[in-house]
Structures are given as structure tokens and as C-alpha cells.
Design a protein around this nucleic acid. Structure first.
Lengths: 232, 232
DNA sequence: GCAAAAGTGTTGTGTATACACCCATGG
DNA sequence: CCATGGGTGTATACACAACACTTTTGC
């Protein structure tokens, strides 16, 4: 039995611990990465305990900002599950997070990035959560503009395509991809171009204001219904 | 302050209560209904407290079976949220459930069904959950076979179409609907027909074995990762 | 001039939509 | 024979996949 277990007075076995765990993805170098927290002898998903006065979304943001020094660009709740591990009963609320590679000002030394295809030995629960997060992320690429959040405000179409390819794990046809993006009407050209090699410069784009389409499967009310209410 | 609040010893404000709430839909009489629990002075979503030795899915099933006498056919987790209501901090894990109208053997007298379009005065949190459940159900009609669970094992194509129409809240074209269903290859004719009025009898169908496509956005591991594990 | 990435169109194929009439039965 | 719901096909528009070459630049 571990010290913080209180089977004797009974309450600790009847009320679960609640934690929030976040699967943060980023794309860098044409590959997809997942942030894990380095706890010396093992690595696990960034996690933390919600407090009474914040929403679960806010908890997830706080975990990333304070513990991992990761400035998150996008957060979406994934799934909740109950587990008993080493005698501790925990209900975990899991989140999918996206960020831009290399945007942390002072990278936390407890944050380590792993390629999504070559993860180390996280526990089974965390591994399942990561895999499910990837399933959701891949699915959402198809019908939302979620990929925005993996890119800086200004980018080329090739960069955008590389993000899609890194997440999906397969190559896409350049012409079909560009047609689809243009048809969606979500980009506007900045007018600038970027010269970065012995080849034709790339035109740069930014996303238009209305990014809201990707809150599709996330209930709109989830962000702000977490304050005091009166009804039961 | 309510009696079960323990601000003085501190732990109750630092560990939330956890409950599970289920939005159960059924289709009957061409309309969509939601089950609420009648608590005398108010009505709310069926809810209950998870216990240590069961998964959250199992909690939801138990709530429906024991409290509401509703035999659920389908369950899918919706969303989790944290709220402080009347001084009580609660993390609620919400579920979408489907059932077949009139299948309860001994209907519970605390279960009342309301039309989804004409709900009474549930609290705001529950109302939001119901609306979000409906959004998810509608979305899933399009790309899964979730509607199966709102019908008995044997049914006519018109009955199936009526279910779609009741959930979506709009009429569908009969020929396009039937073509789509047939093209999906998920039905097989029983060979029987049903005579039930002064008109041509309807051929009856059943669903083929492979219903699993609707576990799409629900992680496959969610059902059975809830037992004791060893790693952190 | 050549290597390297940017950029551009057409064609076929499948999928969704709109739409109107005949069929089988009970009374 | 008629009212009622069951059952069927076609034409059109749109979305998606396959596919190859020209452009601009740095060196």
C-alpha cells in the first residue's frame, strides 16, 4: 500500500483521483513528434491535477505552460477513463494538443520529444491515449482546418503539405492537395515569397480569420460552462 | 453550505466528486425522445457515481439498467467537464446512449421521456450535454451505422428511414436513401414481409454481423483498459 | 546548364441530388 | 375502386484520384 492511500478511513477508495493528461503533437523536420515528461526512470504523458476554480481545458493549458513550457496552439478533449494502477484509482481526462516546433522560449528540461513512430516505453494507458490522439488528429485533418495550429502564421503551400504528410504518414499529390486547399478558400496570399535555396521562391500564405470550423466535435459550450451555476 | 461539503478539513474542495451522466435517445412515433430522471421538483439527466472496480462505460450501463430500467443498446462517451454547482465541485463524464422505445420490461417510475424538441427545464449543464449529444448522434448517422441501435433486429426500410428523419429533424428522399443503404451492403433481407395496413407489405431486413464500424470515434481500448495495470 | 523545389490542368470515375410513377394490399 | 404506404431508375452536378511538364532560382 502506498502512503497516500487511505483504505482505512475509506474515502480515498470511494472517490477517485482526477487528473488531466495531454498528448501534444508537433511537426518538425517532416516528422511527427509527441511530448513526454521525463521523470528520470520513466517517461509519461504531461499530466496534472485540476483545481476547483478552473475548467478542465484550463488545466490542460496550465500543464503545458507551467510544467512543459509548451505554448499550446490548440486543445481538444479526447476521452476520459478510469483505471486502478498500483492501488490508486484515477479518472483521467485526456486532451489532444498541438503546438509549433521550437516555439518554447525556455524549453523545460523535463520535456522530451519523441517521434510518434518510435515511442519509448510509456505505460500502456498512455500509449493507448497517444494512439487515439493520433487517430483523431488524422481524422480531423480531413474535414477541419486543424493543421493550421501546427504551422506559424506565415507559410508556403509546400510546408502545409508537409504537415499533412507527416501527420498522415503518407505522401499526397501536390496538385490535388493545392486544388483542395485553394477551393476551401481558407488561405490568403501575403504577397511575399520566401527564397531559401537554389530553386524558385515559394509564395507565402496566411490563414483567414474564420478558423472556427475545427471546433466541430468539441462542444462550443465546453470552454465557458465551468463557473458557478445555480441549478442542480 | 450543504452538509456534505467539507471546506473545513479541506479535502473535499481539493478532490472533485465524479459522476457519470447519460443522454439516452430513442425514436418512437416518428419523434426523438430523451430520458430524464424525475426527482419530484426537477428533472435531470440520469446520473450516478462510478465505483472503483468498474469502467466508466460500465457505470453508464449500470445507471441505465438499475436506476432507469432502460436496456441500453449503444453507449459512447461524449465529453467531460468540471463544474461548481451550489458549492459542490463535480467532474462529470457524459455519455450518449441509444435504446429501443418500449423495451423496458418494468419501466421505472422515475424515468420520464421528453421530446428532444420540447424539453422541460433541465439545468443548463444538462441541457448543453443533451444538445451536444444530439449533435454527435446526427453527425454519426452520416458515416456510421449507429441508427441500428434505435431499431429492433427486424425492420422495414421505411422504419429505418423514419429513424433517420426523426433524428435529423428533416425529411429524406426515399429513393436516394434506399440506394445509399443498399449500396452500403449492411442489410440482408429476412425474406419475410410485414402486412400492416391497406397497402403493399414491407419487406423486412436485418443488419449484417459487422456493426463495428460505429466504434469509429470511440477508442477501441476504452472498454477494457480499466483493470489493474502495473506501470505508472 | 543543372539541380531542386514551386507551380499549373485535364480527364475519368464515383458519389450525392433532384425528381415521378407503378405496385400490392385492405377495406 | 380507392386510399395508403412500398418500391423502383435516370440525368446532372460535384468531389476526388491519377497523371507530367514548365518555371524560377542559386550555384
Amino acid at each position: 500500500m502506498k502512503p497516500n492511500q487511505h483504505d482505512d478511513n475509506g474515502w480515498k477508495t470511494r472517490v477517485p483521483n482526477v487528473d488531466v493528461r495531454v498528448v501534444v503533437f508537433t511537426v518538425s523536420d517532416g516528422r511527427l513528434w509527441v511530448a513526454l515528461e521525463d521523470r528520470g526512470n520513466h517517461r509519461c504523458l504531461p499530466r496534472g491535477i485540476p483545481s476547483r476554480d478552473e475548467s478542465l481545458d484550463a488545466t490542460a493549458t496550465r500543464i503545458l505552460a507551467n510544467q512543459m513550457a509548451i505554448p499550446e496552439r490548440y486543445l481538444e478533449q479526447l476521452y476520459s477513463l478510469s483505471q486502478v494502477t498500483d492501488g490508486e484509482w484515477t479518472v483521467s481526462v485526456t486532451y489532444l494538443g498541438l503546438t509549433i516546433a521550437g516555439t518554447a522560449e525556455r524549453p523545460s528540461n523535463s520535456t522530451v520529444w519523441f517521434e510518434a513512430e518510435a515511442l519509448p516505453e510509456p505505460n500502456h494507458v498512455d500509449l493507448n491515449i497517444i494512439q487515439y490522439g493520433l487517430v483523431r488528429l488524422r481524422a480531423k485533418l480531413g474535414y477541419t482546418t486543424i493543421a493550421f495550429h501546427l504551422l506559424p502564421p506565415c507559410f508556403s503551400l509546400s510546408e502545409l503539405q508537409h504537415v499533412y504528410e507527416a501527420v498522415l504518414g503518407r505522401e499526397l499529390d501536390k496538385r490535388n492537395f493545392r486544388r483542395r486547399i485553394h477551393a476551401a478558400g481558407i488561405l490568403e496570399a501575403t504577397g511575399d515569397a520566401r527564397r531559401e535555396g537554389s530553386h524558385r521562391p515559394a509564395r507565402l500564405y496566411r490563414f483567414r480569420a474564420a478558423h472556427d470550423a475545427d471546433t466541430y466535435l468539441t462542444p462550443a459550450w465546453a470552454a465557458n460552462n465551468e463557473r458557478e451555476t445555480t441549478a442542480t
